[in-house]
Amino acid sequence: MSSSSLKSLLSGAVLLAAPLALANSSTTIPAFDAKVATARTATSPGGTTVTRGEMSGALHTFIDFDDGVVDAAERTYLGTKVGNATFLTGVEETAKKFLTDFYELNDAATTPAPLSLYWLQDSPEDLYGAGGPLADASNILEGFIPYGQGVANQLTLLETLKSTQEFGYGAPNSSFYPITESELITTLSGTAGFDYETPSQDEVNGAAAFINQISSNSHRLYQASWACFRGCQGDVGGYVIAAVSTDRRFVRVVKVITWVE
């Protein structure tokens, strides 16, 4: 089994296993605090500075070792950290942004907003301005939430993609996490398709530009993994990128196949 396949399997297993080992804020909050405290020590990867990777690892506690969602108590606690000058002392800027983006995305909503997603008429090759394995492995949808009926958050993205027939086989098997434009480029540059081919730089740049048309002003880019283990021609999976507009109503989704068994 390939490492990418194993990674997708494990990410899916986390969500499946979480309810059995149900944690809550009494467990996740101390775990988060402990990870941040460790990140501030001189022997940590960033020294006494909390890096983006360390902040990401700490915030993953609220999802990966819990029930897969940030609940109201956890969000309230995170709200005491966002914008808190004392807490943010010694936290690098990219780590601060990850905290802010994570807090916004995981707003503890209990009802998804009515986001409708539809196929685009043009092919991925036309939309990227270049053909190749990335375009061939892509499915693209976009749509919007009616004005005044909510915003694109974690619950809305996950529930919409799970219930949208046009999304095709497979659905997200992990929560979404904020990514930067450079992380987007890194993801798009990886092998894609059933033959694990490497996209050209033109194809990667075209895909990134197409995705960033939606998020260039808001900088709201999110990534999750997806997989299909039943009803498919073999096990198959990959990643999903969601780009969200400034008002958080318009969403463009790119789903890419990166592995198959």
Rank of each mutant, 00 (worst) to 15 (best):
T86R: 01
A137W: 04
N84C: 01
V82L: 11
A95Y: 04
E93Y: 04
V70E: 02
Y128I: 14
K81D: 06
G132D: 00
L88V: 09
T110M: 03
E93H: 01
V69R: 03
E104R: 04
P114C: 08
L120V: 15
D122A: 15
A130M: 09
K96T: 13
K96D: 02
K97C: 00
G143Y: 13
P114K: 03
Y77A: 03
T94H: 06
T89D: 03
T86N: 04
T80D: 06
T80F: 13
A109F: 08
E142D: 14
D71K: 03
V70P: 05
L115P: 00
F87S: 07
S123C: 09
N84T: 05
T110C: 02
E92S: 01
P114D: 06
L88R: 04
T89V: 09
D107C: 07
E142P: 01
L88M: 15
Y128F: 15
F87V: 14
T94C: 04
G131D: 08
K97Q: 11
F144W: 12
L115H: 00
A135L: 07
D136H: 07
L88D: 10
E142L: 12
L99W: 08
A130E: 05
S138D: 07
V91M: 13
L115S: 00
G143T: 11
N139G: 05
Y118T: 15
L99I: 15
V91K: 06
